[in-house]
């Protein structure tokens, strides 16, 4: 497939970046923190390389999407690839592990402490 110039919103581009896949890895929440386990390698898909570069420090999925100017779904697909290759680790949010599990008072207390220090 011929790689088209990068331009958000072009469906062809999304198709190219993801190799035509549309099923995202739902394990990645917007605020899952991603950490690189290795440096980008030569010949790696450029989006994969950029993610590994960004995630030398923990970086939320939503920040990766904003930096790469790619929709969340596309980023989730790319992260699924990197996870499968063992190139990243993911720190998933506690609160989002199940829709029904509400945050406990101890967690909320910590949030309050943090906010009061602002």
């Amino acid at each position: 497939m011929i790689r088209r110039p990068v331009d958000t919103g072009d469906p062809d581009r999304l198709y190219t970046v993801t190799g035509g896949r549309s099923r995202a890895d739902d394990a990645f929440d917007l605020v899952t923190l991603v950490v690189s386990e290795c440096a980008p390698t030569a010949g790696m898909q450029s989006e994969h390389a950029r993610i590994l570069d960004l995630c030398r420090h923990p970086t939320a999925v939503v920040e990766i999407a904003a930096e790469l100017k790619l929709p969340i779904t596309v980023v989730r697909i790319l992260l699924g690839d990197l996870l499968a290759m063992g190139n990243i680790t993911a720190r998933h949010p506690r609160a989002a592990q199940s829709v029904a599990s509400l945050p406990d008072s101890a967690l909320l207390q910590e949030v309050l402490h943090g906010l009061r220090r602002l």
Binding site: D29, L30, V31, L33, P58, R91
Partner: peptide, 14 residues
């Protein structure tokens, strides 16, 4: 020029 998170950051909240 991004400000990275602390390396110990482990829990994201929304």
């Amino acid at each position: 020029r991004r400000t990275p998170l602390a390396d110990a950051a482990e829990t994201g909240l929304k």
